[in-house]
Design a protein around this nucleic acid. Structure first.
Length: 235
DNA sequence: AAAGATAGCAACCGCCGACCT
DNA sequence: CAGGTCGGCGGTTGCTATCTT
């Protein structure tokens, strides 16, 4: 679980923190605060570099650290924010009181990442059959083919449409599992897991040409902007 | 029961931006 | 402006625990 204690070239200890080291760090920071992490170990009687002390305090010893399993709400928030922000762990952790960026990052890599990937594959299989091209018999044509996640057009891709349908139920827009899909009649729908599907208005639907469904969102939008087909303000 | 594989997570490393001199 | 210091961040490592064969 932890690294074997060792020392670096300058004689600073590395590896797992002992209970005694923890006690010294807690005692010092509690009394004097963390005014300078570089200098702190010297005054606190620790043979650790400042960085190591800071990390230990921030990720483990801080009194407001919340330990234990992540709740379902916390996990959902992490998944949602990761989808929006990417690997900005400190920003994500800031929304989870008592959780550290390191903890959130670890939890993502060990648990949530696999779950999200599994859900993506499952959703694709649900609509298209197991990793097969778009099926004409399925209710919806998927926004993606095979398992190429880069060509999935999740709802968040269209954040710039936020002002367009302000009257919509906000939960629809915030739902990360919403997708933009095309049905048998070529209507373009916003599909939400809560089954409140919505047909997009014709302006938007007609804007999506065939290449939308066959290439990654970024590439598609680059092409759109390059061709000046559509300025954001027009919507 | 033993060996190998995998999961979980604390801790380290290197980089970057802010700030100071 | 240049150089140095510091705190903070994200990626990665290395070790133990647990599971699987």
């Amino acid at each position: 679980m932890a690294r074997t204690p060792s020392c670096d070239k300058s004689g600073m200890r590395k590896g797992t923190w002992t209970a005694e080291e923890d006690r010294k760090l807690i005692a010092y920071v509690s009394r004097y605060g963390c005014w300078n992490w570089r200098q702190l170990p010297k005054f606190a009687g620790l043979s650790r570099c400042g960085k190591s002390c800071r990390l230990r305090w921030m990720n483990y010893l801080r009194p407001d650290i919340k330990r234990g399993n992540f709740t379902q709400q916390e996990e959902e928030l992490i998944i949602r924010m990761h989808k929006k922000l990417g690997n900005r762990w400190s920003t994500i952790a800031a929304e989870l009181p008592g959780r550290t960026d390191n903890e959130v990052k670890n939890h993502w890599h060990t648990s949530l990442k696999k779950r999200v990937q599994h859900n993506t594959i499952t959703n694709i299989e649900d609509t298209n059959g197991p990793l097969s091209p778009i099926s004409s018999s399925s209710e919806f044509s998927s926004t993606t083919t095979y398992s190429d996640q880069s060509s999935t057009h999740d709802f968040d891709d269209f954040g710039f449409l936020d002002g367009l349908m302000e009257s919509m139920d906000q939960s629809f827009w915030l739902d990360d599992l919403s997708e933009i899909v095309q049905d048998n009649t070529n209507d373009v729908l916003l599909v939400s897991p809560n089954e409140s599907n919505l047909v997009l208005d014709n302006d938007f639907a007609s804007f999506l040409d065939d290449s939308f469904w066959t290439q990654p969102y970024e590439a598609y939008m680059s092409q759109v902007l390059y061709n000046n087909h559509w300025g954001f303000s027009e919507f």
